[in-house]
Design a protein around this nucleic acid. Sequence first.
DNA 1: GATGAATGAGACTTCATTCAT
DNA 2: AATGAATGAAGTCTCATTCAT
Lengths: 192, 192, 192, 192
Amino acid sequence: MGGLLEVMAERGYEGATIVAIAKAAGLRSGLVHYHFETKRAILVALVERLVETVDQRFKSRLQGVDGTPRERLDAWIDAHLALGPDADPDAVAAWIFIGGEAIRQADVRQIYQRAMTSRISGAQQLVRDVLMSEGRSTQKMAELAALLVAAVEGAYQLGATVPDELPSGFAAPYVQRVLRGLIDSEPRVKGG
Amino acid sequence: MGGLLEVMAERGYEGATIVAIAKAAGLRSGLVHYHFETKRAILVALVERLVETVDQRFKSRLQGVDGTPRERLDAWIDAHLALGPDADPDAVAAWIFIGGEAIRQADVRQIYQRAMTSRISGAQQLVRDVLMSEGRSTQKMAELAALLVAAVEGAYQLGATVPDELPSGFAAPYVQRVLRGLIDSEPRVKGG
Amino acid sequence: MGGLLEVMAERGYEGATIVAIAKAAGLRSGLVHYHFETKRAILVALVERLVETVDQRFKSRLQGVDGTPRERLDAWIDAHLALGPDADPDAVAAWIFIGGEAIRQADVRQIYQRAMTSRISGAQQLVRDVLMSEGRSTQKMAELAALLVAAVEGAYQLGATVPDELPSGFAAPYVQRVLRGLIDSEPRVKGG
Amino acid sequence: MGGLLEVMAERGYEGATIVAIAKAAGLRSGLVHYHFETKRAILVALVERLVETVDQRFKSRLQGVDGTPRERLDAWIDAHLALGPDADPDAVAAWIFIGGEAIRQADVRQIYQRAMTSRISGAQQLVRDVLMSEGRSTQKMAELAALLVAAVEGAYQLGATVPDELPSGFAAPYVQRVLRGLIDSEPRVKGG
DNA sequence: GATGAATGAGACTTCATTCAT
DNA sequence: AATGAATGAAGTCTCATTCAT
């Protein structure tokens, strides 16, 4: 699973052979099928772990802040785009390939969709909290959340393939700033 | 090439066998290698064609507008996120897989990087034109352009995997609106 | 046929594709099968031509000498091992491969055997003439002829694969000298 | 490897398919690539083994003789041309094809050249020992050695393709006798 | 005579999976 | 738990040969 992450990051899912996965995990190839029924099962487990890792990172980011809506939204963005100490370039590259496998394989798609749905609605909740706390219209919250998640996924792709073309300080800090701009431009509502 | 697009859209690059590619193109498998040296060469040709298609679409969108900076930026977004009559879901799905192949294969990466670099700098130019025409600061133009391209790529991914989770009217119209909001929030500069 | 010779010299028979053979002959691939039924037929024609070329060379070498038995034997050796103006390294290399094809393919084997049989008996005749003209025993003539032909074939192989290991002036002049030595060591017979 | 020897002896290298090689070795085709990276690697291993086999045969022939120079030279010839109990017609036929592959394939050529170089210099050493032990001139030793090796290689070719044309008792015994004749015709040197 | 696209069989090779030890 | 040999299906690619033009 850790082996798959490593190998997949540079060769993709199909390119990750059982032998390579095993070697990357410090095992022998024969043993892999003792722990996992099939190669697909390893992928499924990996997807689940990656999703959970990000969720955990968000939770741990929340510990350190007192919890204003703005802070929580920033923590979410930071957790998803972190390039800090717990950043993992392999995970980002692997995630790109997982995005493709979600198109091809029903079981991966299911987990992937569940994760993205939860991610989008989580983002939407946080955006709504900010908007409401500032007495702004929540009319656009769905679109703001969708844009936020799309920007995150797109940033993964660009980060993995054309890192040199991105402005320094891209990713988390900038998306936070941009989102603040977008939120600030939402109109205040009466009685907010 | 058209065959690869079709098959790749649902099975990815590795999953697109020569036989399937040939069948999708109405050919027999042996003939494929008469026209293309290797399977990779088909992919390379396809990537080039997809990139060019989007570029052409932008140019043709430009024909219909009189050409204010705002209109040109909207045309760019529309060309990249079009879900209208010339939309091509297969191309979007194939593009996801190409994003992965760009990580694995040096020759694909080269074309992909060139395309993305050109796409980012094109976007930046358009953003700058809008900012300057409105007397606004161009300080953030690089980041705005990067965010724009990231949002486009992310929208492809979400559109291909979780279309039901996106707000209706997502994609082009919304990103246009959002970008307008971002631009409007850039400060005016003296003497602009 | 000339095309096959050239290509075969560096790639062998199986490695010589119709396209390569055609190109080497200045033709297009489709035309080859207009002149030859199959690829094997080209090989058969080539073998026949190579055999005949050597025979012709022997005949033309004979023209220049007045025809003592010794001179005729020397001419034979020279014709078979010539490294002079009419030497053809490609033909030597191709002949190596033909020696292999004679093992695999019945039709090639037939021509090859006929050629070698004729070559051996020709050599034997010449050796006998020398022996008899000098009043020596002809008891060993078969073995001398066989050794001569073997040395010729072996010289082809060594010349094609390890030319640097051979003493300068190997091939014709040396084999002539050696053979003279062998003949000289045959005992004189009474009444010869 | 043993499978390749067997199949190659009658079909050549290109004609020896992996499936046939496997079957000849009593294996299934998939397993072949578990032990050998490529088909070429099998060939390389076979070439090395054949070379070594002849070397071993020479060493074992040396055991039985007390070791005069003449005896050692005879043992060398016998080891290389043996048609006795340890003769191997398949190995001879395969060696013919290897001679061709040495022209086509750089890695085979390397091993082949090393083997032939060593074979020629080994022969030269033995010839020199005989010449010196008999007080004869060593001037021609290089050419004698080259001729000896050429005769050996040529005898393989003739033995594999036109065995019926060779005098009975050809090969080892005869070449030994011939070489003795040649050596005997070398002049004695003063002080020898 | 000449062309080059088209065909289809078959080659090497890869690899997930199984299984005896 | 662990190993690594073994299997067999499937994939890419090559190429002699055919054929319409």
